[in-house]
Design a protein around this nucleic acid. Structure first.
Lengths: 176, 176
DNA sequence: CGGTTAATTGATCCTGTTCAAACTAAGTGG
DNA sequence: CCACTTAGTTTGAACAGGATCAATTAACCG
């Protein structure tokens, strides 16, 4: 349970949030050698299960079903990662924010049965780090989308999607 | 053998190159369902082996070594993908180009024993699509790096790295 | 050698950054 | 209960890095 942010940081403080892990996600099991290339922060209280690497691998080896589930998970992460590259490389600020919201809505509806309005759990700055923008730009994007009637801001940490269709059209790549 | 570009395209022509596959790489084996989310172009003549999906999976199941090799490959791709996100999200044009060159040099030295000067095999536009820039910006970045004495341009499709140290310092994230 | 494609360079414009100020919401202690 | 603090958000104005448009130059090939 809980939400964990995985990110890559540069020495000068810039950082890129690389994944948002929540309930049921595998996390950090990808390092073969001892090195961790990414850092994580818990945003909420987190409950996690940890496994001994060797024993886990051994167990997987004898459970083809689990192995293929893991492979699927990886392949899914990879797909998502590639998608995010397209977002970071091609989309402009408002498109990125629109995409982010749809992605989030998708995760929520899949993990927990749809909660409207959408709880962000992330500050503007964290969203910005995720999307390769500055917090001010994210804030402006929210305002613009609100003025266009696509979303509504509920407090500072929640959003309602008012016009999903148009929002999706806005985020050229459809999330899911 | 050969070089394949994997990319994600939007309807309006923008596209993000998501991976550069060359000799020995697995390619496109990640789709569990029938859907392909990414496209590929062969830059050079390509020789590839294709396998029947079912039989391949079955074979993997009985070869733990192969299975773990595949898992390693995936995990490596994932690491690289996350790294690229940081590049796309945080670095500025010249840093991206510097990173790209180091990454390329690394691949070459690993796959083929170091070939100096570095053969790009990509047009400025393809590099731009890879780095989330425009071809003009890439060209300017090359020029600037050249004027700073970090690299030398050999014809239009090859580059010599003159000062690897400083170049690496320039690309805040070290490739490899 | 001429013709074609890609690369370079220049000038202008626009998006997002940066710096700064004002505003909001949620605590905290008197 | 209310003034005061603090962290986060919103908004504004000036600036900068890339994008875009356009023209020139270089490399390649028949």
């Amino acid at each position: 349970t809980g939400i964990v942010l995985v990110f890559r940081g540069l020495e000068d403080g810039r950082r890129q949030i690389v994944g948002v892990h929540s309930i049921g996600d595998l996390c950090g099991y990808l390092e073969k050698d001892g090195t961790y290339n990414f850092s994580g922060v818990a945003l909420t209280d987190v409950e996690a299960c940890s496994f001994d690497r060797r024993r886990f691998d051994a167990f997987v080896e004898h459970n083809p079903d689990l192995a293929s589930a893991l492979a699927n998970d990886m392949s899914d992460k990879l797909k998502r990662a590639a998608e995010n590259m397209a977002v970071l490389g091609q989309l402009k600020s408002q498109e990125r924010v629109a995409y982010f919201l749809l992605q989030l809505a998708d995760v929520y509806s899949r993990k927990i049965g749809m909660s409207e309005p959408l709880q962000l759990h992330l500050t503007r700055e964290q969203i910005a780090d995720h999307l390769g923008l500055r917090l001010e730009t994210v804030s402006r994007a929210f305002s613009l989308l609100k003025n266009d009637g696509l979303i509504a801001l509920v407090g500072a940490d929640a959003v309602s999607i008012l016009d999903r269709k148009r929002l999706a059209a806005f985020a050229r790549l459809t999330a899911a």
